[in-house]
Write a protein that binds this DNA or RNA. Structure first.
Lengths: 349, 349
DNA sequence: AAAGAGACTGTAAACGTTTACTGCGTGTGC
DNA sequence: GCACACGCAGTAAACGTTTACAGTCTCTTT
């Protein structure tokens, strides 16, 4: 691991100046003879350009950061998977930040843009605080936010439409004849929690169904707690015939609890999730789920950032990705025969 | 996004030299009055250290790369999730490379270490070629390989023990009374495919069971093709009473096909997967699966690398992570009553 | 009161590139 | 045969830090 060769080493070896070496390496017009000598020397020495020195001079690092709460979350993972190839083919490396949904960590990331170790940032904050907005206005590098920011924030912005997404699912349940549709939500002080809760209410109103607080239960966004929330809801309203779950994990918890309670899915209770993760297709019964287009949002964000990095200043853009409903067995039970929900004879009391 | 302040700006503002500014910023002994002036100036100007210039001088980037085939693969994701916090708390940023299992891309990553944009690399190659070994010997930064490398390769190395892992599962199936145990494998020209295939054979021999080629089917490592492989195997050997699947996706495909064929799991056919991904717990019936300790391997790799970066030269180390069998319903069917496999009355012909 | 010690501070070089500028040599046009 | 243009190559500065070294100032000691 001895010190690698530099352009100085090459220059000496080839008997030319470092400027010539640099020019050859960058393909600037140079006499053939010089090119040959430099290339030969570089080859022999196994020279590789020092990216750090290069960045210092050129003021570009060819790195982009992606900051989200947790790679383990399938929605962020879906984004990441789309972001990566876009950046790679545009010649950027990807620096990954996990903020664990801690605001201070997100602010830290924004602050660290001042260190200039990346050319730009894609960030998907759980919620956008005043402090976020201040930092965004002062950001030292282009930022793309995945999520909603107020009108006029000077950053590119990619958003989902969870309102329409929830409506898609509720309409679907309504068309299937369900009229007592419960909602199992995560904390309503998070951006997605608040949006999905409000959307549920609106969707019901649009359909002329009454909004009934008894049909709403709040837990967190995970399977076990989601299951507990469903159990509480079932206890209170045994007549519920459909559940709108704020994400797929909650919906899996719902399936667990319904199964344990001997309720057939979808015969007795139809279940819809959100985010359309891998788990939705893998579960049994497979889960009808609203995709909020995480993958598309990731891709759009990466493309916006690359465009801005290449083309410099332009007006901030906003992209809204439409939701899509993936209909599966947990609402329609229309998969081939053996995929029907288990017969009722096996239920607990 | 005007040019940010540098130590020169601060020096002028505070009326001191850039050396003093640097010293204050690095906490070297300095007169109180100077500290005060510098800090005040830095504060007012919103100064942030330039990481690139710092790296150039100090020859450390405080970045580490992680290269694997595909973040979408749950095994790599599990590694990533453990690697990230270890690096973060040691003060390193994470650069993520997806190589799509293309050897040339992996070689590229090794080569790019010469650019010195990272202090070290964690790599999990699909297979290790001669070329890999050459590059590893010449690597310009410390590398930790997750996977097996020949004795004497000058890198730290973390490996799984898929041989023992397969054996755990086969022994488990045997103890449950299964004697006709099929294997659904991925391509045997991959490292995991070859290892798992051989381990299956050995495990049978250890138990005194005959090895029968008819009971082995090769597909790829994904759900649909895994299902097709299982269908072919079932056709050939309808008497099979257990399936060892080379990963969880194949096992999910097996569940699909068995269900469609009216075979009860685990009553008629017990199914075991490998990797113990999230999907294993989410599926129905939940999937018995061998964990090869991806998470632990990721953690160990990160710790080895951090140790080497802090402590410089030492002998290469090797860590082997033991496998663990996660027993679930697809083999024992012993979850609470409603978790039993669906009754047989609903099978197709 | 002079010398020496000690505490800070400033100057300048270095990290490895890129690039503006200058200079040299060749070939062309008159 | 001379001026000029032009194509290349070399010198040196710059990017923003860190740090070795030397210099200044103050305080203590004799």
């Amino acid at each position: 691991m001895a010190d690698g060769p530099t352009i100085t080493t090459i220059a000496e070896r080839a008997g030319v100046s470092i400027a010539s070496v640099s020019r050859v390496l960058n393909g600037l017009p140079t006499r053939q003879e010089t090119v040959r000598k430099v290339m030969a020397a570089a080859e022999e020495l196994g020279y590789v350009r020092n990216a750090v020195a290069r960045s210092l001079k050129s003021r570009r690092t060819h790195q982009v950061a992606f900051a989200m709460a947790d790679v383990g979350n399938p929605a962020y993972l879906a984004m990441l998977r789309q972001i990566q190839p876009v950046l790679k083919s545009a010649g950027y490396r990807l620096v990954l930040h996990s903020t664990d949904a801690v605001v201070a960590d997100e602010i830290d990331v924004l602050h660290s843009l001042g260190e200039r170790y990346v050319d730009g940032l894609i960030m998907s904050p759980l919620r956008v605080t005043e402090q976020h907005l201040d930092m965004l206005a002062a950001a030292r590098a282009p930022v793309v936010i995945i999520g909603s920011v107020p009108e006029g924030t000077p950053v590119d912005n990619v958003r989902a439409d969870s309102r329409t997404g929830v409506k898609l699912a509720i309409d679907h349940l309504y068309r299937l004849g369900r009229r007592t549709i419960g909602m199992v939500n995560g904390p309503t002080d998070t951006v997605p929690g608040a949006a999905r809760g409000a959307a549920y209410r609106e969707a019901l109103e649009d359909l002329g169904l009454p909004y009934d607080e008894e049909l709403v239960e709040i837990g967190d966004f995970y399977r076990a707690e989601g299951g507990r929330a469903v159990a509480a809801l079932l206890e209170r309203r045994p007549d519920v015939d459909a559940l709108m779950c704020a994400n797929d994990l909650i919906a899996l918890g719902a399936l667990d609890v319904l199964r344990a309670a001997g309720r057939r899915v979808p015969h007795d209770v139809a279940v819809a999730g959100m985010d359309d993760t891998d788990l939705a297709a893998a579960s049994w019964p497979s889960l009808t789920s609203v995709s909020l287009g995480s993958a598309e949002r990731g891709k759009a964000a990466a493309e916006l950032l690359v465009d801005r990095l290449k083309n410099g200043d332009r007006e901030p853009r906003r992209v809204t990705v439409p939701p899509r409903l993936a209909v599966r067995a947990s609402t329609t039970g229309e998969e081939p025969a053996p995929y029907q929900a288990p017969g009722a004879e096996r239920g607990t009391p």
